[in-house]
Design a protein around this nucleic acid. Structure first.
Lengths: 335, 335
DNA sequence: CTGAAAGCGCTAACAT
DNA sequence: ATGTTAGCGCTTTCAG
């Protein structure tokens, strides 16, 4: 359209100062008289000045762009995380570039390459292939700070790890306390950290509680249907009396199987969901679930990333985030 | 890291040409000898040259960034759309900047402002507040081409509109053909085009089929639970024998209510879902649903946007996309 | 504290 | 077909 570009020179002229001063005034740089700053900002306001991001990036060698690469944004939990991150970074003047790989490796490669090419100031990743060599190579070549969310990616980076083993302990002990002995785990055996740790953690918790390890249902992905498998498992003679079920899609599929068999929750089978979503809250009955404190999560990520950007990738550190068991109506004492 | 920046000057020197030639050679510009191009590209490869996006954007006045603003990315259908768009644009050398407003107006404002500030080459939007004056103002001020997806936003832009009225006709006629007379509509009365047209279209289709308009369930948002309302509607003496249900979350809530009442699909109540998702496919029984051809959708959007970027926002045009009824096992003849 | 001037790396216009 | 050169709009020395 015909809105002619208005640049910093225009602002400077309008305010009767030099471009250098105008720049300093608008960037809250030190060493500008309060008076001058006011004048300049008024001028900018007047003219509707919009700084040119490209010019700024070129000169300052900072794109003020932060990248996110998540393996599965169809998971509403990750989507929410992304939304929160985006909001927080926007407050700090950063724009967020989001990519969902849907677990496809070549997409993850391309995303990282793009991030580097575009000169992003930092990236946060939760890739689907946590230890792929090419991925690691690209990551190592990335010049800025990296933040890894719940993955065992061998790269020098800050990390936020979720305590899946602790979560399994919480679930198993809760169920065991209600008298359950046969607990069916329903979560995928993905090859990334969460999957691995959940299985190991579940087994350990069962052993510690002196309960027998029985059959398990392992959807291929966190989004695969489990209707048939759950149905089969719950039709067996010594059927499980409780289940620990992953996520949103798998959970919904499991509930479908239960309804289909005419099994009621919690009278016939108790349920603990991994991950707290609208589904677990809104379902009737509401479902007991393992929740991560998203605010805490966002705080850690945002603060560390911003700090790394400021200080130029100093030391790296790991944080561990505990799950919390939200008791609702889906678990009953075994009679 | 210690990787010192390697610029186009280095490439030019290494290849024994001028920077101008190097630039032309790498950008597939016309008027470069095949020989020279080869040499330059080899040099670039050798040195591991990565063009600086900021410099390029500054000089060429094109950021090679395309923005998307969707109201609700928690809807897996929109998430998929975003993924496809991102892939296609990446092939053409564009990076996609995604924002999900979650229906929050101030986020939509900020997103558009950011898009303008960053000099995006084009934007595609499906805002939650389709006619907000400030939004329209910001949009009008946006200098590049705009593509509107299924909204009645009063701005000069290409548009892709979904035929919701036709969809309702498909659903109602299908159900009417099976002998149903009392059909319960379950979709939100959002103030945007899809909600408006669905309701109007449903009513029109019912009248055309000579069926009585009965009660309706209107979740506040496409993500609101409808358990209680559906339960109430289906407990009435002359209860509906069929339902037309929106999306993923609402559908899942409705199924929950059905199961809770002990009503079976399709024996006791028939079901048509608006929007085809993993849930409708994987559910047992699989759910008859109204589908939009995503490939067609993506083609229209990508082609138009790329063309507008090339030709500088010439004429605008509307496209209409029809729904298709996928018959599955959730509808039965009324006996 | 402020002004002047030097580029950041690249593309496009103009020469040759 | 290729070389030369002038900026794109901004931040950041360096003077004053």
């Amino acid at each position: 359209m015909s809105a002619k570009k208005i640049t910093i020179r225009d602002v400077a002229r309008h305010a009767g100062v030099s471009v250098g001063t105008a720049s300093r005034a608008m960037n809250a740089a030190p060493g500008v008289m309060e008076q001058t700053r006011k004048t300049v900002q008024a001028a900018a306001q007047d003219l509707g000045y919009r700084p040119n991001a490209a010019a700024r990036a070129l000169r300052s060698r900072s794109s003020r762009l932060i990248g996110c690469l998540f393996s599965d944004l169809e998971n509403p939990l990750y989507m929410r995380l992304f939304n929160s991150l985006q909001d927080r970074w926007a407050e700090a003047g950063f724009v967020t570039l989001m990519t969902s790989s849907s677990g496809r490796l070549e997409r993850e490669h391309r995303a990282i390459a793009t991030f580097a090419e575009r000169g992003l100031d930092a990236i946060v990743i939760a890739p689907g292939h946590e230890a792929d060599p090419e991925l690691v190579r690209l990551l190592t070549a990335f010049p800025g700070p990296i933040f890894v969310v719940d993955r065992d990616t061998p790269v020098e980076a800050d990390r936020l790890l979720f305590d899946h083993a602790g979560a399994m302990r919480l679930a198993v002990n809760h169920l065991a306390g209600l008298g359950h002995r046969r607990i069916l785990p329903v979560f995928s055996h993905v090859t990334t950290r969460p999957g691995l740790m959940r299985h190991a953690g579940f087994d350990a918790a069962m052993r510690a509680a002196d309960l027998p390890l029985g059959p398990r249902v392992e959807p291929e992905t966190p989004n695969s249907p489990v209707f048939d498998e759950v149905r089969a498992a719950l039709s067996a003679p010594d059927r499980p009396t409780a289940m620990v079920v992953q996520g949103t899609r798998v959970l919904s599929s499991a509930l479908n199987a239960l309804a289909n068999l005419g099994l009621r929750v919690p009278e016939d089978v108790s349920l603990v969901a991994i991950g707290d979503s609208a589904l677990t809250e809104d379902h009737v009955p509401p479902i007991t679930s393992l929740r991560l404190d998203r605010e805490a999560m966002v705080d850690v990520i945002v603060n560390r990333v911003l700090m790394q950007i400021r200080d130029g990738r100093s030391d790296v550190q790991d944080s561990l985030l505990e799950y919390e068991l939200i008791e609702r109506a889906s678990c009953a004492r075994l009679t």
